[in-house]
Amino acid sequence: MPTDKITTNNKQNGNYGEDSIEVLEGLEPVRVRPGMYIGSTDIRGLHHTVKEIIDNSVDEAIAGYANLIIVTIQKDNSVIVSDNGRGIPVGIKKAYGVSALELVMTKLHAGGKFGGSGYKVSGGLHGVGASVVNALSEECLVEVRQNGKLYHQEYKKGVKQYDLKTDEIKNSKIDSKYISSIDSGTTTYYKPDHTVFETLEFDYKTIRHQIRIFAYLTSGLKFTFIDERNDTKESFYFEGGLRSLISSQNRNRDVVHPTIFYAHKEAENIDVEIAFQYTDAYVANEMSFANNIRTQEGGTHLTGLRSALTKSLNDYGKKHNLLKNEERFSGEDTREGLNVGVSV
């Protein structure tokens, strides 16, 4: 009985043995395959680096330790992100013999977002973000202000240039106008590596939109956005959270009801915030977030909201005799003209 054989004429020359196996140490994997960590090396990946550093500062705000974040894009497209939180820990991690700051900046999967002791809620790449940005930067400097002292460390392409240093706060290498607080917090400066990214030109509107959404999702947190390339400075602060977001989006729309329905509570250790308002539009505008990250494909939180809304409107209609016989609203009916935001 004949057997089929898989043949190819495109075999590569060379032997495949133990010498073919490579081990990439430290942050080498990031520089070899950056797209695996930030999605791409085009402008989307470039913008992602900013988001990752901002995420860390927002985590401090969500935990209740920060209320101001300053984001600066300098004329050479270098970035500075500063918060007035607790500051990345600088003590020596005994198991590794280096400071916690150095671990966060130079080791993948190092951070305070895993066990729950550091952060109950957090966004970003969970222990990967800061080190990835560092690895993909031509140069990077992190300054931490704690207990009246300044701690700092510099890196080039992810490699530290010296051990963590302690100095007087007045000796900061970063101008005070870019710093959220001289007393406490973390300030990160980095310049994206031109050998990694296809472009180094940040899009002002994209970064501005990212920051604005962060401000909506974290009520009580103030952002200052400075873009020295076009000499602009803006502040974003929304006490109303998602309610402010819906109000802003419906400003030039005809709304069906003046009051925005809003709820914010914790259930089973999950913080849930919902805001919605109907307009005369024919389609729905649904925005869902998890840990301050936009969930473009929805998720169980959005599915749950849809089901609850449809059920509630049907129950109300039946109770008040607004629906005849077996009439019921479908999901499409209840979402027509709906502008909603849900965050967990």
Rank of each mutant, 00 (worst) to 15 (best):
K170Y: 08
K170N: 10
K170I: 15
N171H: 09
N171M: 06
S172C: 09
S172G: 11
S172D: 01
S172F: 02
S172Q: 08
K173H: 12
K173M: 14
K173S: 14
K173E: 14
K173N: 12
I174M: 09
I174G: 00
I174F: 06
I174R: 06
D175C: 13
D175G: 01
D175Q: 12
D175T: 12
D175N: 14
S176W: 13
S176I: 13
K177P: 01
K177Y: 03
K177M: 13
K177V: 09
K177R: 15
Y178S: 11
Y178D: 09
Y178G: 12
I179Y: 02
I179F: 07
I179A: 05
I179P: 01
S180T: 00
S180L: 08
S181R: 08
S181L: 12
S181Q: 11
I182T: 15
I182G: 12
D183R: 15
D183M: 12
D183S: 14
D183G: 05
S184Y: 07
S184G: 06
S184Q: 13
S184M: 09
G185H: 01
G185A: 07
G185I: 02
T186K: 07
T186H: 07
T186A: 04
T186P: 03
T186C: 03
T186M: 00
T187C: 12
T187G: 06
T187S: 08
T187D: 05
T187A: 06
T188E: 06
T188Y: 10
T188N: 08
Y189G: 04
Y189T: 02
Y190G: 04
Y190H: 05
Y190K: 05
K191D: 02
K191T: 03
K191P: 00
K191W: 00
K191G: 01
P192G: 04
P192F: 01
D193W: 00
D193P: 08
H194G: 07
H194W: 07
V196A: 01
V196R: 03
V196K: 01
F197G: 02
F197I: 03
F197W: 00
E198K: 10
E198D: 11
E198S: 05
E198A: 06
E198T: 02
E198C: 02
T199P: 04
T199G: 03
L200Y: 05
L200T: 03
E201Q: 13
E201V: 10
E201P: 04
F202D: 00
F202Y: 15
D203T: 09
D203V: 14
D203A: 11
D203Q: 13
D203W: 01
D203H: 10
Y204P: 04
K205F: 09
T206Q: 11
T206C: 08
T206R: 12
I207P: 03
I207W: 02
I207Y: 02
I207R: 07
R208D: 15
R208K: 13
R208I: 03
R208W: 06
R208Q: 15
R208G: 05
H209K: 14
H209E: 15
Q210W: 01
Q210A: 05
Q210H: 10
I211W: 08
I211E: 07
I211K: 09
I211D: 04
I211V: 09
R212D: 15
R212C: 12
R212K: 14
